[in-house]
Design a protein around this nucleic acid. Structure first.
Lengths: 209, 209
DNA sequence: CTACCTTGGATAGTACAACTATCCAATCGG
DNA sequence: CCGATTGGATAGTTGTACTATCCAAGGTAG
């Protein structure tokens, strides 16, 4: 298809597509002359992916670029690829293998999980726990164990979906699954809160007008 | 305390504190003359809260302002207060009571929860589900049920922590708990993924160098 | 008591991200 | 063959979150 059709199919304005091309987020079409190039389905999908990551997940374009790069050329092993992808997901925190994350270390020890200060998610956990403390609602042991149990169950569901044979697709699945399903989980938690509040606080308290 | 001490205690630069004062995020100190005012512990706490919401949760200041306003002056009932707070949490989506959210409606019907297009979280769920579809990994029924079960269990843990007697504290708890514990849950899910990947894919695949 | 420091208040400037708009020239297509 | 489309380049806009400077008045240490 030509540019005009790509614009129509994707719903992205021309100026923005040009911007993505310049930024290296979108591969140029196959040039068929000085003033034309043809684009394929992969361009439509790529645009949808960029928009989903920016608008729904809320990623800055620099992070989108990293994730797209990982999908196109994964790191030698899945584990490291996923680790790299996680680093750019919000809230972006760079892991410092030399640093100590005391709250995260204690929490992970408590629930029997591996503590590795080189994981970005460990730094994120530390920040989250510190923030919870700072606003006067630190995480208790009971809550921690409860969260851990159910989060682990959710992670098992996620991994069960993982296509085991095709590595490249598995990487794409892992990376996108982490990013895309996070907002869904957050929304479901919020809805669960409202559902529970409605049932427990009673119809009176739950009445919306 | 005086301004200089507030700066030291909070670690926030003077220019930024002045900016927050101007923006109405921080109440002015009690004026003791044309060029002095005294600040209290509540100012230190408020600054910590602002920083936690902006840096850890990643909220824009406009959303922080809304949340602070809800904590200071909650809406008539908890249910609506929490609803308003949820609306400003990322990814910010405004709920349109007149709109239809087919994916969210189907999903909520499937798991037996109330569907109300007036909830911002419903619009968020719709967006998330649509994004998952757009990138080629739509949510299946099995996954939906699994998520729902565990998310509901997590929400029950959250609500168990809620102080039942003091409404104002309960509101603060609900609002902050939703915002602050979301990044913690996200980090825990990512760590659970890595933990599982390490155990299932084996030490070889999990080797980090 | 006085010279310097702190403060409050106002205003302007900076930095970055993510577009958005325009211009030009080549060329494609009816 | 002539208007519309395209690629390529460049400049401008919008929004957010600060950051820096200036001024005047009031506090404060010696």
């Amino acid at each position: 298809m030509k540019m005009s059709e790509l614009l129509q199919r994707s719903g992205v304005p021309l100026a923005t597509v040009k911007y993505y091309l310049r930024a290296g987020l979108l591969a140029p079409g196959e040039s068929t002359g000085a003033t034309t190039a043809i684009y394929g389905e992969q361009h439509v999908r790529r645009l949808a992916l960029i928009r989903a990551l920016t608008e729904v997940v809320g990623l800055p374009l620099a992070s989108v670029r990293t994730i797209l790069g990982l999908i196109d050329e994964p790191a030698p092993d899945r584990f490291r690829t996923l680790g790299r992808a996680i680093e750019v997901l919000p809230p972006a925190v760079e892991a410092d293998p030399g640093a100590d994350y005391p709250r995260a270390r204690a929490a992970l020890a408590e629930i029997g999980q591996l503590y590795d200060p080189g994981y970005a998610a460990v730094a994120q956990l530390e920040r989250g726990l510190a923030a919870a403390e700072a606003v006067g609602m630190p995480m208790g042991t009971e809550r921690l164990h409860g969260y851990a149990r159910h989060v682990m169950a959710i992670a098992e569901i996620d991994l069960a979906q993982l296509p085991g044979d095709d590595t490249s697709r598995a990487v794409e699945y892992s990376v996108l699954g982490t990013a895309v399903y996070e907002p869904i989980l957050a929304a479901m938690r919020r809805l669960a809160h409202q559902d529970l509040a409605h049932r427990i606080l009673g119809p009176a308290a739950g009445d919306r007008d």
